[in-house]
Write a protein that binds this DNA or RNA. Structure first.
Length: 204
DNA sequence: ATATCGATTATCT
DNA sequence: GATAATCGATATG
């Protein structure tokens, strides 16, 4: 958990990186506090993918998707939420993995504070970081502060640490909330994990 | 238990 | 001007 995943980890296509990220740790360290947990749900957005923000070519918004692998791509959606991705593939190619859910394991106090909620019982824990908007809020992600951040360096305060939380298998399902290329199974979840977003997790 | 709906704004057409 | 990789609240069985 204290060893970051190297940049080379993010060089393959998002289709390969997304399942491989499961079981590793997303970690946040700031002067305000720390937080994080095991990555239990991801989605791949590919270079040639109608559902991807990079599909129509590079713009100001999606610039960090096209940058070097291992960097954060943060976007703002529905006028309310930030979502965190990590860019994959070589510089110049779009492709990224969306972090959709964490099993909260570190800094529960800080994360509940960031979410504006109080965790009293274990059954409240899934509300902390299940879903991309919740996850981003739990670790205090904003586009202004985190877009383009290097996720391969602990010094950046937002990074991904090697771990083997992957007790069981990986399940492949359809992606959530998209309208284009909605039939593509590119969502990956840790089998049997209780911190997955959504209800229907139909295996494909 | 599942279904529907409103919020709220950056981005692109 | 329409839309969106979402969430939380409210309504209904």
């Amino acid at each position: 958990m204290n060893v970051p995943l190297p940049r080379s980890f993010y060089e393959p296509t998002a289709r390969l990186v997304a399942p491989r990220l499961l079981g590793h740790f997303l970690l946040r360290n700031t002067t305000q506090g720390s937080g994080g947990g095991a990555i239990v749900e991801t989605e791949a957005y590919l270079a040639d993918d109608p559902a991807s923000h990079g599909y129509a070519g590079q713009t100001e918004r999606n610039r960090s998707m096209y940058g070097p692998p291992g960097r954060a791509y943060v976007y703002f959606i529905y006028g309310n939420h930030y979502c965190l991705n990590v860019s994959c593939e070589r510089e110049g190619k779009a492709g990224c993995v969306l972090f959709r859910a964490l099993e909260p394991l570190l800094g529960l106090e800080e994360m509940s504070h960031a979410r504006g909620m109080v965790v009293q019982a274990p059954r409240d824990l899934p509300k902390l970081a299940s879903g991309p908007g919740r996850l981003a809020q739990a670790v205090a992600i904003t586009r202004a502060s985190d877009n383009g951040r290097d996720l391969t360096s602990p010094r950046s305060g937002l990074w991904i640490g090697t771990d083997d939380f992957r007790a069981k298998g990986i399940v492949l399902t359809l992606r959530i909330g998209i309208t284009k290329a909605a039939d593509q199974p590119l969502r990956y979840i840790l089998q049997g994990n209780n911190f997955i977003s959504g209800r229907k997790n139909v295996s494909v």
